[in-house]
């Protein structure tokens, strides 16, 4: 059983929902990332999605795009990101880390080399935004062979046939993109999401985590009610942007954001 599967199973056993924060590695600077990962765990994270910065993040809105630019100013490379995970693992062996990014940096490293290094560094899953299963026949088996979960996206526009096919290629969980748009937009319609996630649950046994548009305890609880986990990204990244010059203040601000979400999610099970 992978670390991701283990965490999600255990949460399910307790009737709890996963809180999955996202930050971009190297933002605001590479030497702060490992510290921030620990902060996220202390604030209640069950799994962390760690963004690999890319120069052209087409699926992301201005907030995460700016985070990529901040990280790239410091030259944050995929190799460095893997080093950050390795350092994090020296003191945390329980919180799964999912790398989320675009295909080109992985291809530039060499997909087999990447898969080897990711597994060695203690990465648990890989979500490549611009790699649909149709194009993943080279990468996905490399991940699976190293016990890394290949996580794919589902969208409001995904047909039933594709939901089934994508779920078959996925392990760990599937990531449901809650609306048509880029990260950081705010057009989430909770009722629509609820209907669609219920439908996805009928088509796959995999846990469903929902991302895009979750920004506070209210949206987290509403989405958590129908899914297995919620992914929180832009609102955290925005906080990083606001407090980039004051690390202590930044940690407090991230904690203040995540705490109410954690409580709201745990409130669902009682």
């Amino acid at each position: 059983m992978s670390r991701i599967e283990g965490v999600l199973k255990s949460l399910k056993g307790q009737g709890r929902k996963a809180l999955i924060p996202f930050i971009t590695a190297g933002d605001p600077s590479p030497d702060q990332t490992v510290d921030l990962l620990h902060t996220l765990v202390e604030a209640g994270a069950d799994i962390i999605e760690l963004g690999v910065p890319f120069s052209d993040p087409m699926a992301d809105g201005p907030v995460i795009q700016a985070a990529c630019e901040r990280a790239l100013v410091h030259g944050t490379s995929l190799r460095q990101v893997l080093g950050m995970v390795r350092t994090f693992r020296e003191t945390n062996t329980t919180t799964p880390i999912v790398l989320m990014g675009y295909l080109n940096p992985m291809e530039a490293m060499g997909t087999a080399v990447f898969a080897d290094l990711a597994a060695e560094s203690g990465v648990d899953g890989v979500l490549t935004v611009d790699l649909p299963p149709e194009e993943a026949d080279e990468v996905a088996p490399l991940l699976t062979a190293r016990n890394l979960d290949a996580i794919f996206l589902l969208a409001p526009t995904t047909s039933d046939e594709r939901i089934r096919a994508i779920s078959q290629h996925s392990s760990g969980y599937v990531y449901y993109v809650s609306f048509k748009g880029v990260t950081g937009a705010s057009n989430i319609n909770v009722e629509e999401v609820a209907g669609k996630v219920r439908h996805i649950h009928e088509l796959t046994a995999l846990p469903v985590a929902v991302g895009f548009g979750i920004r506070d305890a209210g949206t987290a609880a509403a989405v958590g009610r129908v899914s297995d986990g919620v992914i929180v990204g832009s609102v955290l990244v925005n906080t990083i942007a606001q407090h980039q010059t004051d690390p202590a203040q930044l940690k407090r601000a991230l904690t203040d954001l995540l705490h109410p979400m954690r409580e709201a999610l745990d409130g669902l099970s009682s």
């Binding site: 087409m58 699926a59 295909l103 935004v129 611009d130 790699l131 649909p132 149709e134 194009e135 794919f152 996206l153 589902l154 969208a155 409001p156 526009t157 995904t158 047909s159 594709r162 994508i166 993109v177 048509k180 748009g181």
Partner: peptide, 20 residues
């Protein structure tokens, strides 16, 4: 049928655009 010219081309987009 998947849009490949030899090793090149394809459809590397995020899931939302696939249907369109």
């Amino acid at each position: 049928t998947r849009g490949h010219f030899g090793d090149y081309g394809g459809r590397f987009v995020s899931e939302t655009l696939f249907d369109s």
